[in-house]
């Protein structure tokens, strides 16, 4: 069971309090009606689903009710960081491959 640091509450809490919400940093197209069916389908359904470092969104549903982001390894389940909505990750697959974190 994951142990998750909520960046808003500033505490590590049990996974029980949270809900995983899938891939993070998916922006809604600014002009939906200008999108083709393909572009709209890509936005709604097609995902990175990486094996390894992943940026995903979580919801502190039984806590502060805030959505936030997490950088997590989908194989080891190690959590590298959590960060607030609107912020960018400081750990990425590239930064880890490059030896920086």
């Amino acid at each position: 069971m994951l142990h998750i640091y909520c960046p808003y509450c500033g505490e590590n809490r049990d996974q029980d309090e949270f809900k995983a919400k899938g891939e993070a940093h998916i922006s809604r197209p600014l002009d939906p009606m200008g999108c083709t069916d393909q572009q709209w389908g890509d936005y709604m359904f097609f995902r990175k689903n990486p094996r390894g470092v992943h940026h995903e969104m979580w919801y502190h549903v039984a806590g502060c009710r805030k959505f936030f982001n997490m950088t997590r390894d989908t194989v080891t389940y190690r959590i590298y960081e959590t960060y607030k909505m609107g912020e960018q990750p400081s750990v990425t697959a590239e930064s880890l491959a490059g030896g920086q974190s």
Binding site: D16, G22, R51, E56
Partner: peptide
């Protein structure tokens, strides 16, 4: 099913 993406062949105890 566990709600998060995972390739670990492990899920959560809850």
């Amino acid at each position: 099913i566990d709600g998060y993406n995972g390739y670990g062949q492990r899920g959560s105890y809850n």
